[in-house]
Design a protein around this nucleic acid. Sequence first.
DNA 1: GCGGGTATTAAGCGTGTGTG
DNA 2: CACACACGCTTAATACCCGC
Length: 231
Amino acid sequence: MKLPQPLYQGTLIRRYQRFLADVQLDDGTVVTAHTPNTGSMMGCALPGNRVLLSVSGNPGRKYPHSWELVQADGVWVGINTMLPNLLAREAILNGVVAELAGYDHIKLEVPYGTGSRIDLLLSGERGLCYVETKNVTLVRERCALFPDAVSTRGQKHLRELMEMVRQGHRAVNLFVVQRGDGDALSPADAIDPAYGALLREAAQAGVELLAYQASVTESEVRLSHSVPVLL
DNA sequence: GCGGGTATTAAGCGTGTGTG
DNA sequence: CACACACGCTTAATACCCGC
């Protein structure tokens, strides 16, 4: 997916209130930008990091700037949590995700379970395939880690995926690594051991675990290739 | 019965999307 | 076209429990 253009480069001053960040643009002006990521963004929200902001044309927005990318460990990292769903759909349609090829329809944000919504629902002669996407921004020693904070919500999603398997459907947890330097993905047991345990349980129960690495540049983010999930 | 500590629950942030 | 809600985590507030 092409990123909105133009992007404005600057330096992160601070992130706060989980939706907001103050950034000093390279022309010296300081702006408050919307942060489309509710996660902890461990290692990606350090003051002094280089960031790229887009500007929305929506006149109703309080803060027109949106934080899109951050430079961490020498690579660009996509922090927009709305992107993984779209990246996944684009990659599936383009045949990049071999495991999810062969379906006729892709729908986004379909209600299911108890008050939840599945990120992608694939349907066709193969039946139904429930795909939950997870945005991954944390990489250590070339291994992508998820989650980067304790998350009960992620556990809920895993339980619901397991339920879909019980009902006879395919269920997939797709980790979207929005940076180019992760060679594999593992649950971050040091951060949330309960999630890691449940992830292994889900895999045993038949929930398919996929991880795809994105190539992230200043103009485009797209899924490029599969990386192994190490449990 | 009271105080202190822990555990659970709820509010809230700004935007995008869906609904009325 | 206006409104309500989901997103997912942080922080605060409330409820609860235990010991004294």
